[in-house]
Design a protein around this nucleic acid. Structure first.
Lengths: 242, 242
DNA sequence: TCAAAAGTGTTTAGTATACACCCATGT
DNA sequence: ACATGGGTGTATACTAAACACTTTTGA
């Protein structure tokens, strides 16, 4: 794949970086790729944009590779476009640890020149129902896995900053867009929702009031009870309307 | 300028479109350029990004040309990146009306090829104090002037849609960012602020309550009275703190 | 019957809206 | 003095927060 990069009909110097959020065990997760090179290089799932492709199609393509989900919730949130935003430094480290790369790239260093330039990156965040995700890697990934957002590995470039910016955007959008339900399975309890909100906002809510507030939104449909086997009242299961 | 475009060290297929808002006579204005060609082509002030330039520097450059203001309020709000977003159609109209263009562009139609490709555009909106603006045109503008947002001329490409998206973003940001004061002169009355808000949100507010709400924000500093000569109480003048 | 947790109600506080009143200004 | 519009206070309605009470479940 790398060999073909410069010839692929991509828009030059423009990339798409995806912060894919998941939620499990009351923790917010982010999907991080370990790059398929010697050395511990981690990064957000990224991609380039074909000439015949909308930018959000490109983002969807990046997501589908990694999560297997086609209709994932996706939201453009910021463009990272500093002049100094270059792969140069990272590339040099990479080549130092992967000397064979330089040999393969004989063709006047076409790949190196592709990557070494400045890139403007469009940041997207995605919300995935982790129960539906089937992790899959693209050729560029050695492995790919979920990291707790509080325990992210060091990442290349400004991917850490992009992640933080995505979390801010998610928090900001939540009030209006109710998109958080995309992080939950199809059915869930109010408590699940509350724990999700508490995780995202890193604060607690009063149980009874939270319940009222969420139900007053009139976006949930009660569909049955969840008998856990525990010695307490079984909570109702809800589904997101429409 | 057009002759040099392809050789200029710009990022390819990436542009910056600026929706510059102004406010006067209780009307929200947008700065629109009439392109320097035969035919009535109107568009938002746009530009390309130099390799050594941050994207917001590029936007500032576009703004400074047109408004003369260096420290204008600027906010990135959306990326327009449909694959179908191409100048092609507009270019063909343009060339039909400006046959000399084709002759000038002998060099294997380098300029045509530059422009005819798909462009991804980063939308910025700017808030300008119209009393400080000294309108100036770049080489690409035949003329440039303020249009009432309700009376925009037909514009090329998706510039109309970009403008509407910018207005939405402005409304959305207003609650949190208090950036509306950038549209007013240094000193103003509460009534000025109210009329501005009413214009932006296209609705009315109750005078006394609006006054309280704005003053309770604690961002205004009272500095004197404005004697208008009218037979009524002189309103206080305020200044935005910091 | 008891503990645990869900669901609902009730009280209180805070904020937003509607409206009334007083104040300053120039004719 | 008075018409005009600015500034402030007050009563009301609405919403959010705190907390208490009831219900359900399995041991």
């Amino acid at each position: 794949m790398y060999e073909r990069l410069p010839e692929q009909n991509y828009i030059q110097q423009l990339s798409v970086d995806c912060v894919i959020f998941g939620y499990q065990d009351r923790q917010l997760k982010v999907l991080v790729s370990k790059l398929n090179f010697a050395g511990d290089f981690y990064g957000l799932p990224s991609g380039f944009i074909y000439q015949e492709e909308d930018i959000d199609q490109a983002a969807h393509r990046v997501l589908q590779y990694r999560t297997g989900i086609a209709d994932i919730y996706l939201q453009q949130f910021h463009v990272f476009g500093k002049a100094a935003r270059k792969n140069q430094e990272f590339l040099d480290q990479l080549i130092a640890l992967n000397p064979d790369l330089e040999r393969k790239d004989q063709d006047d260093h076409a790949i190196y020149r592709w990557f070494a330039r400045r890139f403007v990156s469009i940041g997207f965040y995605a919300l995935a129902d982790m129960t539906k995700v089937k992790l899959g890697k693209s050729e560029i990934d050695e492995s790919i896995r979920w990291y707790d957002i509080t325990e992210l590995p060091p990442m290349i470039l400004d991917h850490r900053e992009i992640t933080e910016c995505a979390l801010e955007a998610l928090r900001h959008d939540l009030d209006q867009k109710l998109n958080a339900f995309n992080l939950l399975p199809d059915t869930f309890t109010i408590k699940d929702v509350q724990k999700l909100y508490e995780t995202i906002f890193d604060r607690t809510f009063v149980r009874s009031n939270f319940q009222k507030k969420i139900l007053d939104l009139n976006v949930l449909e009660r569909i049955g009870k969840k008998f856990t086997g525990a010695a307490n009242k079984a909570p109702y299961l809800y589904r997101f309307k429409q």
